[in-house]
């Protein structure tokens, strides 16, 4: 395994607000925009730290398992890696394309057919239309939905839906894959399929971050485990 660093967190802090209407946040952004000053990075009322002083590095080709209780900040870490959100303090460097499988089927539209959703969801995950045209047969093959591919997704069973979503996601050409609790969905068969696909991706040298409660499953595939408790990280 190469030790080249592909993801690095340096002293990362992330605050969130509990309030419903976030008028402060917009005002802060605008003030920062006009005056050119940095945004406030301390806590004010109604805010809390979701992550406190997180630092870690992931090497190319590693598979990291993140575990910890609900609300400890695991998903926040994934969102920071995929640039959905940004840190309040600290720095993050990610070198490579990221395929976030944070929620399977986030980009699906129920009125569209399976085939149309492959293009929809695929481009959202960063594939180009050309790559998709080339991979579409492979995706359908893996999802095992050949007979249903021209049926609107709203008529799918939840298992079929998940199979399609997973199949699209793992065919992304990204270097970094983020899995959030995807090991916990679907039946035994499907989980087994997921695991073997994850192993296949690892063999191709992809980097992976897997979030799960299931320490046993994490142990089966991951090279290293990291625990997160109330926003603080502990390495095993």
């Amino acid at each position: 395994m190469s030790s080249e660093t592909i993801i690095e967190f340096r002293d990362v802090w992330k605050k969130y607000s509990k309030q419903q209407v976030l008028n402060n946040s917009l005002r802060e952004e605008l003030v920062a925009f006009i005056t050119g000053k940095r945004r406030r990075d301390d806590l004010s009322e109604g805010e809390f730290w979701a992550l406190r002083d997180i630092s870690f590095a992931v090497g190319n080709g590693e598979c990291i398992g993140l575990h910890g209780p609900n609300g400890s900040g695991k998903s926040t870490i994934l969102k920071l890696i995929s640039r959905v959100t940004y840190p309040t303090r600290g720095n993050i460097t990610v070198s490579g394309r990221v395929a976030p499988l944070i929620e399977l089927g986030a980009g699906m539209h129920l009125d569209l057919t399976g085939m149309e959703n492959i293009y929809m969801n695929g481009t959202i995950l960063g594939l180009s239309i050309r790559e998709l045209k080339y991979k579409v047969d492979e995706i359908i093959e893996f999802s095992d939905l050949k007979d249903f591919i021209n049926v609107p997704v709203k008529k799918y069973s939840s298992g079929m839906y998940l199979r399609l979503a997973f199949s699209i996601a793992v065919h992304s050409p990204a270097e970094i894959f983020l899995f959030d609790e995807v090991l916990a969905v679907g039946d035994e068969d499907f989980q087994g399929q997921c695991l073997s696909k994850i192993r296949a991706l690892l063999n191709k040298g992809k980097t992976m971050i897997v979030v799960s409660h299931d320490m046993e499953k994490l142990g089966q595939i991951c090279t290293r485990l990291l625990g997160v408790t109330v926003g603080v990280m502990s390495a095993d």
Partner: peptide, 14 residues
């Protein structure tokens, strides 16, 4: 457009 790209980073949070 400037304002948009600036506040866009916080969209997921709010």
């Amino acid at each position: 457009y400037r304002v948009f790209t600036r506040i866009e980073r916080a969209f997921a949070d709010v």
